[in-house]
Design a protein around this nucleic acid. Structure first.
Lengths: 131, 131
DNA sequence: CAGTATCCTTCGTGATACTG
DNA sequence: CAGTATCACGAAGGATACTG
């Protein structure tokens, strides 16, 4: 949810880094991905999200929803009923993003073990956390 | 650089979200991508990184390097000379990650305009920042 | 139901001085 | 050169009471 990546006055290769950051800044928050995935299955209501995205607080759900809506990744539809009924849906842009995230997912799956091993090795050689 | 995504006790679809987060947590920091890309070109020294990754402080460079090394994304080679000479190289695992990030990059390029438009529209309808 | 408003804590980051 | 140590600050995130 951080801003401030304006991508100015950097040379060649770091420009690419900046473009990647642009994309990551849209999903870098602690809850964005979970919400996006839940909303990609079809329209979903506020309270349903609160249940499906485990551990999220009401405040963070609202904030993250607003940001995703602002970036055009979620569409918010308010039914004028009482009690209110609000449904969130992933936009086509968000669905494309999700496709792109699959590549990342596969990377994580491939290297889950390797990373754990690397961490364990590192923590053994240097000071382990709490030790 | 945040931890705390243990991926436990969540149902079906949110498990996928968690896997994505696993990957993103490795590159979610403000500087990780820039460093990774610089180090993917070949061995690079501390001071060179400090120059190439614009705006980074000495402290954050050290911290980010340590984390990337710990996760097995960077290899650190110390030449036993005086003055010291330390070179960082992206591991094969990191190179694969970079490939995966290209999908994200293309998404960002495709939708850069769309996102700006969405933001402008949102800020116009609701309260714009400073207004 | 779908949020706001408020308060509080922790984390990430920056600036800078010091060192093997 | 390649770091470490300290201090400080703002933003991200959490808990929860209140409301149209």
């Amino acid at each position: 949810m951080s801003q401030g990546n304006r991508c100015v006055s950097i040379q060649a290769e770091q420009a690419r880094a900046c473009t990647v950051r642009e994309a990551l800044d849209r999903v870098g928050g602690k809850w964005s991905i979970g919400i996006l995935i839940a909303a990609s299955q079809g329209p979903i209501r506020f309270t349903e999200l609160e249940r499906q995205v485990e551990g999220i607080s009401r405040r963070m759900l609202t904030l993250t929803l607003r940001n995703l809506e602002r970036d055009g990744l979620l569409h918010r539809h308010v039914h004028p009923t009482v009690p209110p009924r609000v449904e969130y849906t992933a936009t086509p842009m968000a669905r494309e993003l999700y496709e792109s995230l699959v590549a990342l997912t596969r990377w994580a799956e491939r290297h889950r073990a390797g990373i754990s091993a690397a961490r364990a090795a590192y923590d053994r050689e240097h000071g382990a956390p709490v030790g």
